[in-house]
Design a protein around this nucleic acid. Sequence first.
RNA 1: CGCGGGGUAGAGCAGUCUGGUAGCUCAUCAGGCUCAUAACCUGAAGGUCGGAGGUUCAAAUCCUCCCCCCGCAACCA
Length: 492
Amino acid sequence: MKFCVTTPIYYVNGDPHIGHAYASIAADILARFKRLDGWEVHFCTGTDEHGIKVARSAEAAGMDVNKFCDVTSQKFRDLGKAIKLSNDDFIRTTEERHIASSRELWRRLAKDVYKDSYSGWYSARDEEYVPEEDLVDGKAPSGAPVEWMEEESYFFRLSAYQDRLLEFYEKNPDFIAPASRRNEVVSFVKSGLRDLSISRSKFDWGIPSPDAPGHVMYVWIDALANYVTSLGFPENIERVSEMMANCIHVVGKEILRFHAVYWPAFLMSAGLTLPKRIFAHGWWTSEGQKMSKSIGNVVDPQEIVEKYGLDPIRYFLFREIRFGEDGDFSENALRRRISYDLANDLGNLVQRVLTFVQKIGGLRVNYDFGADERPLFDDSRNLVEKLRVLMDKQDLNGALGEIWRLISFSNRFVDHMKPWELAKTNESKLDLVLTALCESIRAIAFGIAPFMPDTAGKIFDFMNVEGKSFREINVNFTNPTFKPPFPLFPKE
RNA sequence: CGCGGGGUAGAGCAGUCUGGUAGCUCAUCAGGCUCAUAACCUGAAGGUCGGAGGUUCAAAUCCUCCCCCCGCAACCA
């Protein structure tokens, strides 16, 4: 039972923002869920460091390019710490292992690679080709003059993979998610694929293409290869195959095409196993507007985590919208979620039940459930199975909805059973009710653990539960000693 | 006529295939209850279902036309 999940490797050209944190946390949640469910997991993230833009940024900053990459890559590593990523690997495309892996991948593409020339409108000032339709009055969008250029380039025979790709999408309808994105990709491929220029000779900040002096690899070959590098390519092919077969690439919608079209074609050509799914997530606006530096509404993940705490942010990002769609990040909405969902529903449930257990001197376990307690107990024990189905579809929003159904049911159960009255009138009934509630709280803690590891940890600690595996849910409590709880999401 | 998705209560969405009193979650208001960071129960307010026409006893749902929004449209990480 092997499972692999990846984030995009982040381009070191800019600083981390909430979008990076979002993709990373999504992958982290999937990874943590699978680990709790007993799978061997490989969760990888990292930074993409080659390409003309990085070289130029380094120059603009007056820094050596290697040094520049060290500094910016570290920012993403720091972000990972701040949002408690449980990644097993952090890859940098400038690492030796990756350079070797990319070059080997290139060699394996050989039968589909040929040398030709690439031509187009080139802006010397911007150092890039400008697509014909982007020209403004015969100039680059930046206003720079363009000239018709031709340069030698290696090409990948992408056109040869059109039918194979379409057949693959047909046979694997869930390869691209969400479904709306799949349609975009399929219609893109159907419209006809052109061969892909995969080398550059105008700059040298890249991985040298094997057997092609003066050429470095097109950054996307280099970047995509990170996924197999991290799994041990080319030395450990067996592991690469096993992991890729059950691998989810979490990507932003803006880079879906590279992952859903080019990457499978490269893998087919190289004779490697294709990933199980490409999941394209949506984008966040901020307070109803597109995030932009000039408006000043770019959400800095570390700042917002410091202000509201990590778990509330991790919760909000996946509760507020369906994973795969766009959403709006607003502090009002965030505060509402914290107050209503976290403090009032979850926090209060744990508090009212565990405080009560303390008050009567500890839980006296009784599992002889009757018709009153049975439904709650069954829902608690069945929660993980329901979550499994949803998590396999990366329906993170649905999973949280399912957990909150159990929270809400538990709160209703307390209100109906009135344990404070049972304490005076019917102690054995009270024991049944509290046992059922402790069962549900434990199940809820496991359910939220992938999303809010710290909060789950606190509940596990209150209840002296290890919290390492979903299997613990199926073990009956045996007159446990609990610790006095404290509010999980205190209000001012 | 490039391809695709969508316009339903303050917000987010379901319902459209297989016509029949317009629904869910959250938010709002009133009353009840109170073990708790409170929750729960009961009731209420709020929509000409993008627009116009048509079919039908009956249309959010079928047909026609129109308006608006949003993706994708290749070497951009």
